[in-house]
Structures are given as C-alpha cells and as structure tokens.
Amino acid sequence: MKQKLASLIYWIKSLLVKIFKKYDGRWAYIITTIIALALFIGGIKLFISLTETLKSTYLAASDTAISNYVASFRTPYLTNYFIFVTDLGDALGYVITFILCTIIFYFTFKKWRYVAQLAFVMVLALSSNLILKQIINRARPDAEHLVTVETLSYPSGHAMMAMAFYGTLLFLVSKFPIKKFYKILFITLCLILILSIGVSRIYLGVHYPSDVAGGFIAGFVWVVFCVIVFDLIQIFKRDPAT
C-alpha cells in the first residue's frame, strides 16, 4: 500500500514538473485565472444573496443602525471631506483620473492595453449599474441628503465604480515595473479612497449601507471578471511576458 501511495505521489510530482515546464511564464496567468474565477462565482452568489434580503426587517434594522451611527460623526470638517471624496466618485472625477492614467500609461510604460483595460472596466461597471438600479428599483433613504441625487439607490453607483475602477488600477499597478515601496503606497491610497467613497454615501445620507455593500460586491465581481479576461488573453499570446 505504501509503495502504491509513493508511486502516486511521484506520478503527481512528475506531472506538475511537466506542466510547469510546458507553460513556463503562462502558469502564473493560469493560477490567477483559476483564483479569479472562484472569486467571480462567489461574488455573484454573494450579491444575489444580499439582493434577495433587501426587504427583510433584519437588513432594514441593520441599515438604520449603521446609518445613524455614521451620521453621529458629522462635523463641518468631515462633511467637507466626504463631499470632496464623493465628488471624486462622480463622472467628472473619473474622466480626469482616466485622462491622467492614460497619459502615465502611455508616456511612462508605453502600454496602450492598460488604457483599454481600464476603459473596458469603466464601461462594464457603469452600464451594469444603471441596469441593476432599474431592475431592483430601490428608493433612496428618507434621511436628510447633504448632496443632490437623482437616480435610484441599489446598488450604489459610487461604491461600484470606485471598486471597479480603482480595483482594476490596483491589479494593473501590481504589474508595473516600479519599486515595491511605491506600489504599496499607491495600493494603500487606492484602498483608502475606495473605502472613503463608499462611507461618504452613507455619511451624506444618500445611500443605505446595504447599497454600498452591494456596490462594492458588484464592482469587485467586474474586477475579477476582467482579471480573468486579461489573463486569458495573455495565456493565448505567443509571448505572455510582453
């Protein structure tokens, strides 16, 4: 029995060695794609589960409690900060950021594909958010709104776009040939910005916490979907290192 087990382990080991040798640089893309696919499926299931509980009394009570707690921290300074942050999450903010990214991607890294990938995610997130809002048709909170809003509530477009846009930037930056310190600094700033944009929508009274959670989940789903697409493209290229 031990001999058969040892033979099986040796066979698996030999197979893995052959696979690594065969795919070489592509193996990293394959692993990333598999992990992203699992996260993509899990994210969709989580979003559906959250959406199905929107009318439950438990979620309503949780939304109210969290919203009141966040609103209790309102000060002139924080209000100005969150209005500034939420403006960054509006259309004009993304247009300016996208233009800056386009300039950096082209002149610094000479990679037009980064621009195309970022634009692809933006279009997917924006269009799907508008469709989801119309399908789910959830009204805004009755609380005082500190900024003007016109669209429906769920999922939060600001949270969804922040996660999709800056989440994709995190993925792209991880591939940039820059020092580790600058990568960590940029990733930290992006994470703070994503979180701040989401919290700002609750703080300003224009979204339920579940709206923001749904937006984050939906945006994350698009990020991992695009990671799958981008990595599959690299797998099928002749030279995946380029």
Rank of each mutant, 00 (worst) to 15 (best):
W11G: 12
I12C: 09
I12V: 14
I12W: 14
K13V: 10
S14Y: 14
S14L: 11
L15F: 15
L15P: 13
L16A: 10
V17A: 04
V17K: 09
V17H: 09
V17Q: 09
I19P: 02
F20C: 06
K21D: 12
K22R: 13
K22A: 08
K22M: 14
Y23Q: 08
Y23H: 08
D24P: 02
D24S: 07
D24K: 10
D24W: 04
D24M: 04
G25W: 15
G25Q: 13
G25P: 15
R26W: 05
R26C: 04
R26E: 06
A28N: 11
A28K: 14
A28Y: 13
Y29W: 04
Y29G: 06
I30G: 04
I30A: 04
I30F: 07
I31C: 04
I31A: 03
T32S: 08
T32V: 11
T32F: 06
T32G: 07
T33K: 02
I34Y: 14
I34F: 14
I35V: 12
I35W: 01
I35G: 02
I35H: 00
I35D: 02
A36M: 03
A36S: 12
A36W: 01
A36K: 01
L37M: 11
L37C: 08
A38M: 06
A38I: 05
L39T: 03
F40Y: 15
F40A: 01
I41N: 02
I41K: 01
I41G: 04
G42V: 15
G42S: 10
G42K: 08
G42D: 05
G43V: 11
G43I: 10
I44G: 00
K45D: 12
K45A: 10
L46D: 02
F47Q: 00
F47R: 00
F47G: 00
F47H: 01
F47W: 01
I48H: 00
I48N: 00
I48G: 00
I48K: 01
L50R: 11
T51N: 03
E52R: 13
T53S: 09
T53I: 14
K55H: 11
S56D: 10
Y58T: 15
L59Q: 15
L59V: 13
L59P: 07
L59E: 15
L59K: 07
A60E: 11
A60C: 03
A60G: 10
A60M: 03
A60Y: 02
A60K: 09
S62Q: 13
S62V: 10
